[in-house]
Amino acid sequence: MKFSTKEDIEAPIGDVFDMLCDFETFERAAMRRGSEVQRADTKTVPGVGMSWNAVFSLRGKRRQVEIEMISFDKPDEMVFECRSQGLMTLLNIELVALSKNRTRLMLSFDIKPLNLSARLLVQSLKLAKTSLTKKFKLGVAEFAKTLEERHKRV
């Protein structure tokens, strides 16, 4: 099951990519929302092999996820593989320079079940795909807006 969207950001591609590489800010944001996030690697610069372990609550259950960066192509693309109980998810973040000060952010999220219970979960998500897609697109639009505002402040 795949979700994808794109948003345009009023900022140069290099600046947008650098903001997306500020992983400590994302870790703190997740922790403020009640998640436990811990780096699982010792890399000092962003790149392939970076990984995190996260624990969060979803639908009343505690979920664990392992996240690993599997592709890093500065300033164009980052791909993350997320593994959880029975699910494998690929998160693809792609940037395209539209002009000197305008960047298109393309984000896709592909969920693949690995066992029967995960297959049932994905099947139930498919029933709500329209509303989930709308929420996903709104969330990415808000995220793009915050990146744009962060760029203006600098």
Rank of each mutant, 00 (worst) to 15 (best):
V154N: 12
E27V: 13
L138S: 14
E24A: 06
I93A: 04
M50Q: 10
S71C: 06
R28F: 06
V79D: 08
A118L: 06
K126C: 13
E77K: 13
V96Q: 14
R150V: 02
R104V: 04
T89A: 05
F143C: 05
S131V: 14
E66W: 09
S4W: 10
M31R: 07
K134R: 12
S4V: 12
F72E: 05
A30V: 02
R39D: 01
L107Q: 08
T103E: 04
P113R: 01
P12Q: 02
Q64K: 15
L120R: 09
D76P: 03
I67E: 07
G60M: 03
F3H: 08
G49F: 05
H151T: 04
H151A: 08
L120A: 11
M1H: 07
M78I: 14
V96R: 11
M19Y: 02
E7K: 11
D15C: 00
M88S: 11
E68T: 10
T146M: 09
S4H: 14
E68P: 02
V37Q: 04
W52R: 06
L90C: 08
G60K: 01
K100Y: 12
I111L: 08
G34M: 03
N115W: 08
K145E: 14
V55E: 15
V140K: 01
M50G: 08
S51I: 08
R33D: 12
S71L: 12
T5K: 02
L98M: 10
E149R: 08
D110A: 10
V16H: 00
Q64T: 15
E7G: 00
I93P: 04
D110E: 15
T89G: 00
A11L: 05
L120W: 07
E10A: 12
A141P: 10
L125G: 11
E10H: 10
T44Y: 08
P113E: 05
M19E: 06
A29M: 13
D41V: 06
V45M: 11
D18G: 07
M106G: 14
K43H: 12
F80V: 03
A141M: 11
L132S: 05
A40Y: 07
T130G: 13
G139S: 04
E81R: 15
I13G: 03
D41E: 06
E66P: 08
G139K: 01
E10F: 04
A40F: 09
R39N: 04
E7C: 07
D22R: 07
E142C: 00
Q123I: 15
A118F: 01
V122E: 03
K145V: 04
F26D: 14
D8T: 15
G47Y: 02
D110N: 10
K2N: 10
K6L: 05
M31T: 07
K134W: 11
A40K: 14
E27C: 09
I13E: 05
C21Y: 03
M88W: 05
L91P: 00
L114W: 03
L107V: 15
E24D: 14
K112N: 09
M69V: 09
C82A: 12
